[in-house]
């Protein structure tokens, strides 16, 4: 099997969407699509599975809440109970209303930061990461669809040319 891909470039999101549908219909494999802005419905048209990142955020939030409860119970009730302003800290249940603000803050803190870290790791984003978009114009106004070459290369190119592409290029897969 060859490592070649065809990069078809489009200058409009609606033309791109039609092209993606046509390519899928013709049973070609879309390797990747690069767009300068979120094109709504593109993920569904490409057949991408939904992201589960919101579920991770919920789990991280639960971790944050549990951590807050454990931390305040340990520090205020177990390790060093004090009587502050006539309000002794000898029972978590009796003191818990005062702990609600920090439980909430730590839930949000954990959910937000850990979700974003997960996103950066899954999408391979970090400082000093080299950008891999095939053309600098894909962050401006151009849309690139990469289709894997499987079988006749010329046939695929001529098929893609009919989908409204403005530029077409056959290259080795880059990774």
């Amino acid at each position: 099997m060859s490592n070649k891909v065809v990069q078809a470039m489009y200058n409009d999101d609606d033309i791109l969407m039609d092209a993606v549908k046509a390519v899928r219909e013709a049973n070609h494999h879309i390797e990747e699509v690069y767009t300068p802005f979120p094109v709504h419905g593109l993920d569904k048209a490409m057949g991408l599975k939904g992201t589960r990142i919101a579920i991770t955020a919920f789990m991280y939030g639960c971790v944050g809440l549990a951590f807050a409860i454990w931390m305040m119970n340990y520090m205020m009730i177990q390790d060093w109970p004090q009587d502050i302003g006539g309000k002794p800290s000898f029972s978590f249940a009796a003191n818990s209303p005062a702990f609600v603000p920090i439980m909430f803050e730590l839930t949000v803190f954990f959910a937000a930061h850990l979700m974003v870290i997960t996103f950066y790791m899954r999408s391979k984003l970090w400082p000093f990461k080299k950008a891999e978009n095939p053309d600098p114009r894909t962050t401006d106004d151009m849309f690139v669809m990469e289709v894997a070459v499987d079988g006749d290369e010329n046939e695929l190119v001529s098929f893609l040319e009919k989908t409204g592409t403005v530029e077409i290029k056959v290259t080795e897969k880059h990774y």
Binding site: V33, V39, A54
Partner: peptide, 16 residues
């Protein structure tokens, strides 16, 4: 951070 604008990245970006 080496943003490239892949379809999957945009999907996650919007969800995030």
């Amino acid at each position: 951070f080496g943003w490239t604008g892949r379809a999957k990245d945009w999907q996650r970006f919007e969800e995030v």
